[in-house]
């Protein structure tokens, strides 16, 4: 059996592979069957909308070129913004993958090594049950910091300058610049630049502690439902 063709093919080749597949893949799938996968539209939230509309105000011409203009009626406008947000998230994720961002930045906070003190709450499975984590962007290497709680920490124009040339903001950063996400200067992000900024601003925007991730317990936004409230209102209180 151990030296026969059928033994090698069936037991080693198929059965052991299948056994590993069941234990490594089927078991977690069964465990997470109660966490349905959300679409990009379903993960759009007030925090992201705030940043996205800020992009539209900050870079009006570029934004118009990339996404067009919102419709006139108030109700249709809401729908339009949400749809454009979802569209930007999917496109932004594609840039994030295509540029290899995920090879130098992880997207999960571990419960060890003081990571929750540096970045915020430890990652949970439910955070990853959505279309934008297909395939999941956990990452395996951190040359730069984890990004899963990056949203809202820095402003859109900070990100624009940083993507254009990281050394302008952090002179020892080994991160490469991405001038092709812009039309010549950091104040003119093109569609690719805008969607990538939106994607990065989304990371962690679903958490109660947003954007004060490290001061998790004392977050002033703790009791406010995310979808209806813009963070600037909350900050004003």
């Amino acid at each position: 059996m151990f030296e026969s063709k059928s033994g090698v093919l069936l037991i080693a080749g198929l059965f052991f592979f299948g056994l590993a597949f069941v234990s490594n893949v089927v078991v977690p799938v069964i465990m997470y069957r109660d966490l349905p996968e959300k679409t990009a539209l379903e993960v759009v939230n007030g925090n992201l909308r705030y940043q996205f509309e800020d992009l539209a105000r900050r870079y009006p011409e570029e934004f118009k070129k990339a996404f067009g203009e919102p419709p006139a009626s108030e109700t249709e406008q809401q729908k339009w913004w949400n749809e454009k947000c979802a569209e930007a998230l999917l496109a932004g994720r594609k840039i994030y993958v295509g540029e290899g961002c995920w090879h130098c930045h992880s997207q999960f906070v571990r419960p060890v090594s003081n990571e929750d003190k540096r970045w915020g709450p430890v990652s949970e499975s439910k955070e990853y049950q959505n279309e934008l984590q297909r395939p999941v962007m956990f990452g395996t290497r951190r040359v730069g910091p984890d990004l899963s709680r990056e949203g809202g920490r820095r402003s859109n124009d900070w990100h624009a300058v940083h993507f254009f040339e990281p050394k302008r903001l952090s002179d020892k950063s080994p991160m490469p610049g991405y001038p092709w996400l812009f039309d010549g200067s950091p104040d003119k992000p093109n569609r690719r630049g805008l969607v990538l900024i939106a994607y990065v601003q989304w990371l962690g925007s679903w958490l109660e502690s947003y954007p004060y991730f490290e001061q998790y317990e004392q977050s002033p936004l703790k009791d406010i439902p995310l979808a209806e409230t813009k963070p600037d209102d909350a900050a004003a209180k």
Partner: peptide
């Protein structure tokens, strides 16, 4: 087949991570 199709078309999140690791 497992690595290139399952996390792309069938799974997301942590279970997709498990497939990716595998």
């Amino acid at each position: 087949a497992m690595g290139n199709f399952i996390p792309q078309y069938f799974l997301c999140g942590s279970s997709a991570g498990a497939v990716g690791g595998l």
